[in-house]
Amino acid sequence: MPYLHHPRTAEIDLIPVLHALADPVRLGIVTALADRTELPCGELDFGISKASMSHHFRVLREAGVTTTRQDGKHRLIALRAADLEQRFPGLIGPLLDAARPSTVG
């Protein structure tokens, strides 16, 4: 299995994080991960090709938003909420709140 780069917490930069979160699919992935410890990549389905999903997972991972680990044949993805909070206090919570569907009505 090839090595997957994950930036150290101190290396996470705001511009790549914001770029990663600006895409609706990637924001949907992050929102889906927000309430879980980790999730198999295959369980996330946004109606796009596996190659496109892999691209979105890579952008999130390389920006430092998520972490991916191998578990047998499966890759498990998790949100790096604590690392993001450490680097950019108060950023991730409001972004996730704004991305979730509103229940007002």
Rank of each mutant, 00 (worst) to 15 (best):
R80P: 04
T68K: 07
G90E: 04
G105S: 09
A99P: 11
A98L: 12
D71H: 14
L76W: 07
L96H: 03
G72S: 10
A78D: 03
S102P: 07
T66H: 03
H74M: 14
A78Y: 00
I92N: 06
V104E: 14
F88D: 10
D71L: 12
R87T: 05
R80E: 05
H74I: 14
Q70E: 14
A99C: 08
L91Y: 01
E85D: 13
P101I: 13
L76G: 00
P101V: 10
A78P: 02
T66E: 06
R69T: 12
F88I: 12
A78C: 08
L76V: 09
R100M: 13
A78H: 00
A99T: 08
R100F: 02
K73I: 11
R80F: 06
V65W: 02
D97G: 05
Q70G: 04
P89T: 11
A98Y: 03
G64S: 07
E85L: 05
I77E: 02
L76H: 09
D97W: 09
L91M: 13
L96M: 08
A99E: 04
T67A: 09
A82N: 05
L95E: 00
P94H: 02
H74W: 13
Q86H: 14
V65P: 00
A98S: 10
G72E: 08
G72Y: 13
L76D: 01
D83K: 03
A82E: 13
S102K: 13
G64I: 04
D71C: 06
I92P: 06
G93N: 03
A98V: 06
L79G: 04
T67P: 00
A78W: 05
E85N: 12
V104C: 13
Q70M: 13
P89I: 13
L96Q: 05
L76N: 07
R75V: 12
E85F: 01
G93M: 03
A81G: 11
A82D: 13
L96I: 15
T103L: 15
T103C: 09
V104Y: 10
E85P: 01
Q86W: 14
A78R: 09
S102G: 10
R69M: 11
T66W: 01
A81L: 08
G64F: 01
P101H: 14
A99N: 08
S102N: 15
V65K: 00
R80T: 06
Q70L: 15
R75W: 11
D97P: 00
L79S: 06
D97I: 06
A82Y: 04
D71P: 00
I77V: 15
I92Q: 12
R75N: 11
A81D: 14
G64R: 03
G90C: 05
R75Y: 12
P101W: 10
G90I: 06
